Simulated scan of single mutants.
Amino acid sequence: MRFMIIVKASPESEAGKMPSEKLLTEMGKYNEELVKAGVMLAGEGLHPSSRGARVQFSGNKRTVVDGPFAETKELVAGFWLIQVKSKEEAIEWVKRCPNPMESDSEIEIRQVFEAEDFGAEFTPELREQEERLRAQL
């Protein structure tokens, strides 16, 4: 099972405050544990929303809205993509994570959909296309 581990933004991360050397060292050790355990697939920090944009969809119309975005607690400051056996195992890994904000913070855990989750609507042709695209990655 794959899980996206979402680090929620804080006022400090949205202001562009960089992590301390201590936190970077702790995160490096944590990432090393994830890699050595064969769990980590990807993981990165993100720039503040002031450097981002959103594309809003309304029918065929697309509207681009530049950041920053107001609701800090709803924004993402970073992520990991991990592969583990269960949600419980994902939770255990996250509980071992250094506090990513050096203040109060929150990390969200969300399971990634797999091909079999889509049922009959995910036809053999669509499965083949998905496998072909994954092989190209």
Rank of each mutant, 00 (worst) to 15 (best):
F3N: 01
F3M: 14
F3T: 04
M4W: 13
M4L: 07
I5V: 13
I5L: 03
I6H: 12
V7E: 08
K8V: 06
A9S: 06
S10D: 12
P11M: 11
E14Q: 02
G16E: 11
P19A: 13
S20G: 11
S20M: 10
E21G: 09
E21T: 13
E21A: 15
L23M: 12
L24W: 14
L24R: 13
E26K: 08
M27S: 13
K29D: 07
Y30F: 14
Y30V: 15
N31G: 00
N31D: 09
N31S: 12
E32K: 14
E33G: 07
V35H: 00
V35Q: 01
V35F: 04
A37P: 01
A37C: 10
G38L: 06
G38C: 04
G38H: 14
V39Y: 05
V39R: 04
M40S: 00
E44G: 10
H47L: 11
S49I: 07
S49V: 12
S50C: 14
G52K: 09
G52D: 06
R54F: 01
V55Q: 06
V55D: 07
F57A: 07
F57G: 04
S58F: 12
S58V: 13
G59F: 11
G59E: 09
N60C: 15
K61P: 09
K61F: 15
T63Q: 06
V64P: 14
V64I: 12
V65L: 07
D66R: 02
P68W: 05
F69H: 00
F69W: 02
A70T: 15
E71W: 00
E71K: 01
T72H: 06
T72A: 10
K73S: 02
K73T: 09
K73G: 02
L75S: 02
L75T: 02
L75Y: 00
L75Q: 01
G78H: 13
G78D: 02
F79K: 05
F79W: 05
F79Q: 03
F79I: 06
W80E: 01
L81V: 08
L81I: 12
Q83E: 15
S86G: 06
S86C: 10
K87R: 11
K87V: 15
E89G: 08
E89V: 00
E89D: 07
E89H: 11
A90F: 09
A90G: 03
I91Y: 10
I91A: 08
I91C: 08
W93I: 02
V94Q: 11
K95R: 10
K95N: 09
C97D: 10
C97S: 15
S105T: 15
I107T: 03
E108V: 04
I109V: 06
R110T: 01
R110S: 01
Q111C: 06
Q111L: 05
F113D: 02
F113V: 07
E114S: 03
E114I: 04
A115R: 07
A115E: 08
D117A: 03
F122H: 11
F122C: 12
T123W: 03
T123A: 09
E125L: 05
E125A: 00
E125W: 09
L126K: 06
L126D: 03
R127T: 04
E128C: 02
E128M: 05
E130F: 08
R132L: 01
R132D: 11
L133F: 11
L133M: 12
A135P: 06
Q136K: 15
Q136L: 13
Q136D: 13
L137E: 03
L137T: 12
L137R: 08
